[in-house]
């Protein structure tokens, strides 16, 4: 795996995959208010059901210390089972990470109430604590 590109950042890079409806507040606004770290990359998908295992692994390869998917609560998904599909793929990625000797806690699935920003911010915090506990992945 390649080295983390931006070593100067205190918190390692976190990549979030979420669906278009998860949050309406822009990441810039949240970042300015200090609610999320600088080094957070939010990738919006039409639906989290679209996520593929390769994309999650790719995020790690691109330097992520942790990756999570924030999907709609299972009863709220526009596409009925999109977020449940994502959950399955996150589970599969966890197993793959284990095989690669990487802590499976570095990838996670979160179900969040649609349109609410608090759960996302909480998820980011959760992942940040996990990284702090697990140590750096990319600094070999």
């Amino acid at each position: 795996m390649s080295r983390l590109k931006n070593n100067s950042c205190q918190v390692g890079k976190i990549v979030v995959f979420c669906c278009n409806y998860t949050t309406s507040v822009s990441t810039d606004t949240l970042r300015e208010a200090g609610l999320i770290p600088e080094n957070l990359d939010v990738k919006k998908l039409p639906c989290t059901g679209r996520i593929e295992v390769s994309a999650l692994l790719d995020a790690f390869e691109q330097g992520a210390e942790a990756v999570f998917v924030a999907g709609c609560r299972s009863d709220e998904c526009h596409n009925l089972s999109g977020s449940r599909r994502a959950e399955k793929r996150v589970g599969y990625t966890k197993r793959l990470l284990e095989e690669l000797d990487i802590d499976p806690d570095r990838v996670e699935m979160f179900f969040v109430h649609r349109g609410e920003t608090q759960p996302i911010v909480d998820a980011v915090r959760e992942m940040t604590t996990r990284i702090a506990k697990l140590g750096q992945l990319h600094s070999i």
Binding site: S24, V25, E116
Partner: peptide, 22 residues
């Protein structure tokens, strides 16, 4: 929407830009 006790508002301007503020 509420984040950490602050209230987040999101709106779209006439020319289609999406804005949000706390």
């Amino acid at each position: 929407d509420q984040v950490d006790g602050r209230l987040a508002l999101t709106w779209t301007t006439d020319d289609g830009k999406s804005c949000s503020e706390l």
